[in-house]
Computed example of a mutant assay.
Amino acid sequence: MHEAKFDGYRSQIIIDNDEVRIFTRRGLDWTAKYRDLAAATKTIGRRECHH
């Protein structure tokens, strides 16, 4: 899944079973900074995400 880059940050969302993690391009874990996005990703489920 991807989101348009408006704020200057590019990130990658990893879904592994029920765990959602959000990483920067440099590999920093920013899941805590994007809690709402991580929670929303969990609700849509893996079938709705495309690689």
Rank of each mutant, 00 (worst) to 15 (best):
residue 12 Q to V: 15
residue 1 M to G: 13
residue 24 T to Y: 04
residue 11 S to T: 14
residue 26 R to C: 03
residue 43 T to V: 08
residue 30 W to P: 00
residue 12 Q to E: 15
residue 33 K to V: 06
residue 18 D to A: 08
residue 10 R to K: 13
residue 28 L to P: 00
residue 42 K to Y: 07
residue 51 H to Y: 10
residue 23 F to R: 02
residue 28 L to V: 06
residue 47 R to T: 14
residue 8 G to N: 04
residue 48 E to W: 08
residue 35 R to G: 00
residue 9 Y to C: 07
residue 6 F to G: 01
residue 23 F to S: 01
residue 45 G to R: 03
residue 8 G to D: 02
residue 45 G to W: 11
residue 50 H to G: 01
residue 41 T to F: 05
residue 10 R to D: 10
residue 29 D to V: 06
residue 11 S to L: 10
residue 12 Q to F: 14
residue 16 D to R: 11
residue 29 D to T: 05
residue 5 K to R: 07
residue 23 F to T: 01
residue 51 H to F: 12
residue 4 A to K: 02
residue 16 D to P: 00
residue 28 L to N: 09
residue 1 M to F: 10
residue 9 Y to K: 10
residue 17 N to S: 14
residue 41 T to V: 14
residue 12 Q to K: 09
residue 32 A to E: 07
residue 24 T to G: 03
residue 26 R to W: 11
residue 42 K to Q: 13
residue 22 I to F: 02
residue 49 C to W: 09
residue 43 T to S: 06
residue 40 A to N: 11
residue 9 Y to P: 02
residue 19 E to L: 14
residue 19 E to W: 02
residue 43 T to F: 00
residue 39 A to G: 03
residue 3 E to C: 06
residue 32 A to P: 01
residue 32 A to R: 10
residue 51 H to E: 15
residue 8 G to T: 08
residue 3 E to N: 07
residue 8 G to C: 04
residue 9 Y to W: 10
residue 39 A to M: 11
residue 42 K to S: 11
residue 27 G to D: 03
residue 21 R to S: 11
residue 16 D to F: 01
residue 33 K to G: 03
residue 8 G to K: 07
residue 1 M to A: 12
residue 9 Y to N: 13
residue 32 A to F: 02
residue 34 Y to P: 01
residue 10 R to Y: 09
residue 41 T to P: 01
residue 1 M to S: 10
residue 35 R to S: 10
residue 50 H to P: 04
residue 45 G to Q: 05
residue 6 F to Q: 10
residue 4 A to E: 11
residue 16 D to K: 12
residue 7 D to V: 13
residue 24 T to A: 01
residue 6 F to T: 15
residue 43 T to E: 14
residue 13 I to R: 00
residue 29 D to Y: 05
residue 40 A to E: 15
residue 29 D to A: 08
residue 48 E to N: 12
residue 26 R to Q: 08
residue 26 R to T: 13
residue 41 T to A: 10
residue 20 V to M: 03
residue 46 R to E: 15
residue 1 M to T: 14
residue 45 G to E: 09
residue 13 I to L: 06
residue 23 F to Q: 04
residue 49 C to S: 08
residue 1 M to L: 13
residue 11 S to C: 13
residue 21 R to T: 06
residue 23 F to V: 03
residue 20 V to L: 03
residue 33 K to D: 07
residue 19 E to H: 07
residue 8 G to V: 09
residue 2 H to E: 15
residue 27 G to W: 10
residue 8 G to R: 05
residue 37 L to W: 04
residue 38 A to H: 07
